[in-house]
Amino acid sequence: MGATWSDVADWIEPLSRGFVLNLEITFITILLGFPGGFVLALLVERRSPWVRWPAMVIVEIGRGAPALVLLQFVYFGFPQIDLTLSSFASAIVALSVSTACYTSEIIRSGLAAVPKGQKEAAEALNFSSADSMRFVVFPQAAKISSPAMMGFSILILQSTTLCFTIALPEIASQAYEIGSTTFQYFPILSLTALFFIFVCVPASFLVGWFERRSEP
């Protein structure tokens, strides 16, 4: 027995409710993770080993550990050190850390790709190093990094489905729950995939368009 169209219509509502959570988590993760990545990129570039080494260790751990492990670590592991977070907060913490560590490398290469002459011009004009970063280097690095950052944002959205393992009622948990009661796994998971395709395919086109446009 297959699912009927009226079944599908019934599923749309819980799946949408779940998907809103995925989008929320993605949005907040970008909001926290990208600036975090920028800060880590700056720290890793510092000359002092007391700053550089801890930053490098954080980045390597964040990049080395799978996002799934980080999620479980925060949600199930933290309570053992008396830090209990809701599944939503755990998702934000784990995914933001992972995002910050991954994007710090993207941002670092973006900063390095700004021609040396630009920094020298700012220096010769007597800009403070903060002003040089803010007005000269960062805007150019952001433009260089943005296609990769947009691509990474799509990956964040997809990795939010891992949150079904920490009891967050996002779209994958909703689908799994409906599947486990109706046994209509094939149509329900197809429908779930459609939600992502609906967002990710246009976003990928946007990234591609942006990449072509920002080529010199």
């Binding site: 021609p115 002459g117 630009q118 020298e120 011009a121 220096e123 010769a124 004009l125 007597n126 007005f135 000269v136 805007p139 150019q140 433009k143």
Partner: peptide, 20 residues
């Protein structure tokens, strides 16, 4: 460094205008 550069203007071979 600040006080010194305040008195000096520099023009580079590759112009180094800010492209953005």
């Amino acid at each position: 460094r600040k006080a010194l550069r305040q008195q000096l203007g520099m023009v580079f071979q590759s112009f180094n205008l800010f492209p953005h």
